[in-house]
């Protein structure tokens, strides 16, 4: 049904999106926790910084990433010195761009669900002998899980659709940074590429649909009070 080249594009997109979401989930949860529960000076500023990729033109985000990860940039120089690697023109760079763009959506969804957890249940857990960590692990985390799942799916969908920051940051290298949106854009520029555009666009819609339905089913399961952890 699909040519090996098309399969390659789909596999690369899934890899980039999956790694992007997996890598940004821990910081997203930590940030969501800080914003939901923390009381510290500069919280408004942190909130604004987290949301920046959502409102800044993606091209600007990509350019800022380029400055940071370029061989002479602060993070790029450090990666080069310590690990001898560069993420420029690599799929890892595409994953970084996708992760940064997905982060605000994930933080928003997770933060809402943490705010929705009844803290009186955590108090009950504490009086029953659970320390902070056990209370978090057995009460807060499972009860906020539907929001975490929603955040992961939203983030994954956003990562799959990432275009502006990726093409600015790591360019369009077929097989390396050429994810679905970039491949579609390239095919549009190619005479006679309409058939490929149609097929790739169809795959994009299908993938997004599957992700959304899966998240809905999982959220319903969690909502019924079944053990999901």
């Amino acid at each position: 049904m699909l040519t090996p080249e098309e399969w390659g594009i789909v596999a690369l997109s899934l890899k980039v999106g999956g790694v992007a979401v997996a890598a940004s989930l821990p910081p997203a949860f930590a940030l969501a926790w800080l914003l939901a529960r923390g009381r510290f000076p500069g919280k408004v500023l942190l909130d604004a910084l987290v949301h920046l990729p959502l409102v800044v033109p993606p091209v600007v985000t990509g350019w800022l990433l380029l400055l940071a990860f370029a061989p002479a940039g602060p993070i790029g120089a450090w990666l080069q010195d310590w690990f001898g690697v560069s993420v420029l023109f690599r799929w890892t760079g595409a994953a970084i761009a996708a992760g940064v763009m997905a982060l605000p959506l994930m933080v928003r969804a997770i933060r809402l669900s943490i705010e929705g957890v009844d803290r009186r249940l955590e108090q009950a857990a504490r009086t029953l002998g659970a320390g902070r960590w056990r209370s978090f692990r057995t009460v807060t985390l499972p009860l906020s899980l539907p929001g975490v799942i929603a955040g992961v799916v939203l983030g994954f969908a956003r990562a799959l659709g990432e275009f502006g920051a990726t093409i600015t940051f790591v360019s369009n290298v077929p097989g390396e940074t050429g994810t679905l949106p970039l491949a579609i854009y390239a095919a549009l520029q190619t005479p006679g590429g309409e058939a490929l555009v149609l097929r790739l666009a169809g795959i994009s819609v299908l993938l997004s649909l599957v992700a959304l339905i899966a998240s809905e089913l999982i959220a319903r399961r969690a909502g019924r009070g079944l053990h999901v952890l």
Partner: peptide, 15 residues
């Protein structure tokens, strides 16, 4: 503290 605290609302863990 080992308190056996029965809250006004039952506060059972819903999950």
């Amino acid at each position: 503290r080992r308190a056996g605290y029965v809250f006004q609302e039952a506060r059972l863990f819903p999950h």
